[in-house]
Design a protein around this nucleic acid. Structure first.
Length: 363
DNA sequence: AACACGGGGTG
DNA sequence: CACCCAGTGTT
């Protein structure tokens, strides 16, 4: 039995239809690969369409402001991907005359492109024999070969890479081979309870023979989630008849870098007076500050306790003591900025509430 | 080598 | 709740 022949036969009969599989355009393939990093296909697919609709080619992406790219990326997470792809588009425009690099080593130099993505683009767009080693392929290959040690270790990665390089060469079709490896891992050799009984590779699968499928690949347990405590204040500001509010940009090297947010006080135990003091609000205006609600927002590595407050005022009252960090913006223009998911949820919820209130008033 | 970085689906 | 997804960059 020839491994790659069996694999590609399975692939031709079971593959999903995905938009980036029917193109050789390196830009489109690149966009799809960046969006799909650590992201399930169902989650990333709508973002792929949004992205190429907004930025159909390298030039439109390179010329767009970063804020617009982040707007498209809003809600997808790992926002460094958006910053890096925007940066790399300008790399290509300026350093490479707008010509997309065509070899693995050149593609690897792009910001946000690591070994996996460089291999993927090189094979899909340029037929280079560069095997991909993503989560799906690692799972399938480590089981098939019986790689039971820590997958991140150089030695174990090399065992898998050597095997894959041999097989991709035999396949004579590096693009199809890579797609098929990932698809098999995603659809058949699944993380939990793969259906080994009907697997076309079970005869030669070491983990199956050793009854170690469910414990392979070895994963080290993640560190305990740290908690953070965010207090966001929605300023409801009367400003010459234009309902306005305050936002600021997260410039620190931290979660949600370069996204916008409401004025923030990061502190666990909190009283109204803490907020009034922190934002230099008139002491007498504590009655204008209302706690709205609290949500717990789960990230992979953090547990965010987010409390939303609302403070009613007019611009004259606060303008003198206001930090220049904050930007005054009409409330109706908030949708033009990219916000983290919890803030989007708050703004949507607020909008819904006001819709209902105005309906009540009219009836 | 370990950690930071998002958000959401699955069993 | 644990696990993990078409991973990469930084420390």
């Amino acid at each position: 039995m020839i491994f790659s022949l069996e694999l590609i036969k399975w692939y031709s009969e079971n593959k999903r239809s995905l938009p980036w599989r029917n193109t050789r355009n390196p830009y489109l393939i690149w966009v799809s690969e960046i969006i799909m990093q650590q992201t399930r296909v169902e989650q990333g697919l709508p973002y792929y369409h949004r992205f190429i609709s907004a930025f159909p080619n390298l030039k439109t992406l390179a010329n767009a402001p970063l804020d617009e790219v982040l707007r498209i990326w809003q809600g997808l997470g790992y926002y460094s991907r958006a910053r890096n792809i925007h940066y790399a588009a300008n790399q290509i425009q300026q350093d490479l005359n707008g010509i997309f690099p065509s070899t693995y080593l050149e593609i690897l130099k792009l910001k946000g492109v690591g070994k996996y993505t460089a291999s993927a683009i090189a094979s899909f767009a340029f037929d280079e024999y560069t095997p991909v080693l993503d989560g799906n392929v690692i799972r399938f290959t480590s089981r098939y070969l019986g790689v039971y040690g820590e997958v991140a270790k150089k030695e174990n990665a090399k065992t898998m890479e050597d095997f894959l390089l041999l097989e991709i060469k035999k396949s004579k079709a590096p693009d199809v081979f890579n797609q098929a490896m990932m698809e098999f891992g995603a659809l058949h050799c699944t993380p939990q309870n793969p259906n080994c009984k009907i697997c076309i590779f079970k005869i030669n699968c070491r983990a199956f023979a050793d009854n170690k499928v469910n414990s392979t690949p070895l994963v080290k347990k993640s560190a305990k989630k740290q908690k953070r405590f965010f207090n966001y204040v929605y300023f409801d500001i009367e400003n010459k008849g234009i309902p306005s509010t305050l936002i600021s940009k997260r410039v620190q090297k931290d979660i949600w870098q370069d996204l916008y947010e409401l004025p923030l006080l990061e502190q666990e135990k909190i009283k109204k007076s803490d907020i009034v003091d922190f934002f230099h609000l008139p002491k007498s205006s504590e009655k204008n500050l209302k706690k709205q609600f609290k949500i717990i927002h789960q990230l992979s590595h953090r547990e965010l306790h987010v409390v939303f407050w609302e403070y009613h005022t007019s611009l004259d009252v606060i303008s003198d003591t206001l930090s220049p960090l904050y930007e005054v913006i009409p409330q109706i223009k908030l949708s033009q900025k990219a916000f983290p998911v919890p803030i989007v949820s708050f703004l949507n919820r607020k909008e819904e509430t006001e819709k209902i209130l105005s309906l009540d008033k009219n009836n």
